[in-house]
Simulated scan of single mutants.
Amino acid sequence: MNLRNIDLNLLVILDALLTERNVSRAGERIGLSQSAMSAALARLRDIFGDPLLVRAGRDLVLTRNAEELIVPLKDSLNKIEQTLLRRPSFNPASDARTFSISASDYAGLVLLTPLVQMIANEAPNVTIHLLPRARDATRVLQTNQADIVIEPTELFGSNEYPSCALLSDRWLCAVDAEHPDIADDVLTEEQFLQLPHLVYGIGTHRQLNLADQHLANAGIARRIQVTVESFLLNPFLIQGTRLVSLVLERAAKKIAATLQIKLLAPPHALPDIHEAMYWHPRHTTDPGHKWLREKLSSVAKEMS
């Protein structure tokens, strides 16, 4: 393949097609008509010797070759964009930038709420997109769907992404303030095992949170009566019930102040969680991204 014979604008079109998987929406994204997009897709198919997008019912799906192009294509386009738009500095008081952060609702309450308040006052032209926690955090960074991922180090696992520790938190048991079976604000091991539990599951596949994973691995069986995907719903759901739920202290204390629940020490030792932020190396030296990471680190430091 000779690059001199290829219009490199086609790479922008290809990126839009692979992202949207729809010719009309891809055209709207980059300002081209549907006929122009169809003609460009025909040229791309000829260049790659592959249909790239094929029809499956009413939808278009990517071929295997097209799937493998997503990450390297985005990386290449991002590097070109950074080279052309490189800024020697970033002024939050005047510069207009857009950033995205993927995090759980727990991290959203504890870390992102004060971050948004800080940025709203200091950077009036900065837009922050807050995204839900992703099942595959590394792919979110690879494909540039998020600039920062906030994730417990225990879940993110071994990786080569730059990172910065933010905060740690411990697990407590949340119960109704007038729980009929718990006296003197002490939850015994027997009560913990016999009472019904509400369990926070991560994502639609209901992956157990770190505390419940620890108990399961230790062979501690409980009666799970309710599961919920949102960590922040836990305290609301246990009100007026006999349910017990494992919650993280920093978030639970913020919510418990307005609810009729109480927080108790668990009868079993549970490992703390350690939240960190991760980003793609492409953003390490960008002044705007550095400013955002410093603000997030500042928020976490003040909490500590």
Rank of each mutant, 00 (worst) to 15 (best):
residue 11 L to F: 15
residue 161 Y to I: 05
residue 187 L to W: 04
residue 88 P to Y: 10
residue 266 P to L: 01
residue 87 R to D: 08
residue 201 G to M: 00
residue 146 A to L: 07
residue 255 I to D: 02
residue 185 D to E: 10
residue 32 L to P: 00
residue 161 Y to A: 04
residue 240 G to V: 06
residue 151 E to F: 01
residue 69 L to H: 01
residue 167 L to E: 01
residue 115 L to K: 10
residue 213 Q to H: 08
residue 90 F to C: 06
residue 203 G to E: 11
residue 215 L to N: 03
residue 22 N to M: 05
residue 10 L to T: 03
residue 179 H to V: 06
residue 232 L to S: 12
residue 143 T to Q: 14
residue 99 F to M: 05
residue 158 S to R: 02
residue 234 N to V: 13
residue 123 A to R: 07
residue 263 L to T: 01
residue 260 Q to Y: 11
residue 89 S to D: 08
residue 48 F to A: 05
residue 16 A to F: 13
residue 133 R to P: 11
residue 213 Q to P: 11
residue 45 R to D: 15
residue 32 L to C: 03
residue 247 V to W: 02
residue 182 I to H: 10
residue 155 L to Y: 11
residue 283 H to K: 04
residue 123 A to W: 12
residue 27 G to P: 04
residue 122 E to W: 06
residue 208 L to Y: 15
residue 122 E to F: 03
residue 128 I to S: 10
residue 243 L to Y: 08
residue 210 L to P: 13
residue 166 L to H: 02
residue 229 E to G: 15
residue 63 T to K: 10
residue 303 M to D: 00
residue 262 K to C: 05
residue 163 S to L: 14
residue 167 L to H: 00
residue 109 L to S: 08
residue 46 D to P: 03
residue 266 P to G: 10
residue 28 E to W: 05
residue 256 A to Y: 00
residue 170 R to A: 11
residue 53 L to K: 04
residue 3 L to G: 03
residue 214 H to Q: 10
residue 45 R to F: 12
residue 176 D to P: 14
residue 119 I to R: 13
residue 96 A to I: 07
residue 152 P to R: 01
residue 128 I to E: 10
residue 246 L to S: 10
residue 13 I to R: 14
residue 110 V to S: 01
residue 15 D to S: 08
residue 262 K to T: 08
residue 301 K to N: 02
residue 241 T to Q: 10
residue 290 K to G: 00
residue 152 P to K: 01
residue 281 P to Q: 03
residue 15 D to W: 08
residue 198 L to C: 13
